[in-house]
Simulated scan of single mutants.
Amino acid sequence: MFGARPLDAPVDALGAEDAHLSRRRNVLASIPGLGTVTAHALLADMPEPGGMEDGQAAAPAGLAPITRRSGTWRGRSFVQGGRAAVRQALYMPTIVAMRFNTDLKRVYDRLIAKGKHAEVAITAIMRKLVVLANALFHKDRLWTQKAA
């Protein structure tokens, strides 16, 4: 029913030619919930991770919370700007990651228990995935499950 997409073979071939790109794809694909298609999309649309501080990693994706303020008035936080393609590429893998990554599932459940809306919690998990990818690139290592 589902066959290979027309761009999968050329993208895989390009990744196989470049050891650095192949390593970055493997680092992303090691995170539960993220597959090679998402890894390719993130590498194409957001090549900066690994060279940024943790707090900066989510801003290019438009996943950093921004608080509206004026004088003493303070509004609600929201996300804006950034690269919509990155957010779109991360949405469904985030839903999958919340099911199979116990750390992310715990964060999601905690946010829901605090009364956060589901979309706000999902956006927070998307942000955590970008920050996690940045940290893994920075340390040049694969994702590993935390020991209990």
Results as ranks from 00 to 15, higher is better:
Ala57Arg: 08
Gly62His: 10
Ala124Asn: 02
Pro65Glu: 09
Ala57Gly: 12
Leu63Asp: 01
Asp45Phe: 07
Ala44Cys: 11
Thr144Met: 01
Gln145Tyr: 00
Arg99Ser: 13
Thr123Gly: 09
Ala64Gly: 06
Ala147Asp: 09
Gln56Val: 12
Ala39Gly: 13
Thr72Lys: 15
Ala64Trp: 04
Arg83Glu: 06
Gln80Gly: 15
Arg68Lys: 04
Pro65Asp: 07
Ala44Ser: 13
Gly115Cys: 03
Ile95Ala: 11
Met52Thr: 06
Asp109Thr: 11
Ala135Met: 13
Leu129Glu: 10
Arg141Cys: 15
Arg87Val: 13
Ser30Gln: 04
Gly55Cys: 09
Ala58Leu: 12
Leu104Ala: 02
Ser77Asp: 11
Leu34Thr: 04
His138Cys: 01
Leu42Pro: 04
Thr72Cys: 11
Ala118Trp: 10
Asp45Ser: 12
Gly81Ser: 04
Thr144His: 05
Ala84Leu: 11
Asp109Ile: 05
Gly55Gln: 06
Arg87Lys: 14
Ala97Asn: 10
Arg25Asn: 10
Leu63Glu: 00
Lys146Phe: 01
Phe2Lys: 05
Thr102Ile: 00
Thr94Glu: 00
Ala16Arg: 15
Met126Tyr: 01
Gly115His: 00
Glu53Cys: 03
Gly33Arg: 14
Ala19Ile: 07
Phe100Lys: 09
Gly3Leu: 12
Gln88Ser: 13
Pro49Met: 03
Ala16Thr: 11
Ala121Thr: 11
Ile122Trp: 05
Leu104Trp: 05
Ala135Trp: 00
Lys128Cys: 02
Leu42Met: 11
Gly55Arg: 04
Val79Asn: 00
Gly75Ala: 13
Pro60Trp: 03
Ser22Asn: 00
Leu34Tyr: 00
Arg68His: 02
Ile31His: 00
Pro10Tyr: 07
Gly75Ser: 03
Ala29Arg: 10
Gln80Lys: 15
Val131Asn: 01
Ala16Pro: 07
Arg83His: 11
Gly33Thr: 13
Leu136Met: 12
Pro65Thr: 05
Thr36Arg: 14
Leu142Ala: 14
Asn26Ala: 15
Arg110Ile: 05
Gln88Tyr: 05
Leu43Val: 02
Thr72Asp: 14
Ala84Trp: 08
Ser70Ile: 06
Pro32Arg: 04
Arg69Asp: 14
Ala39Gln: 02
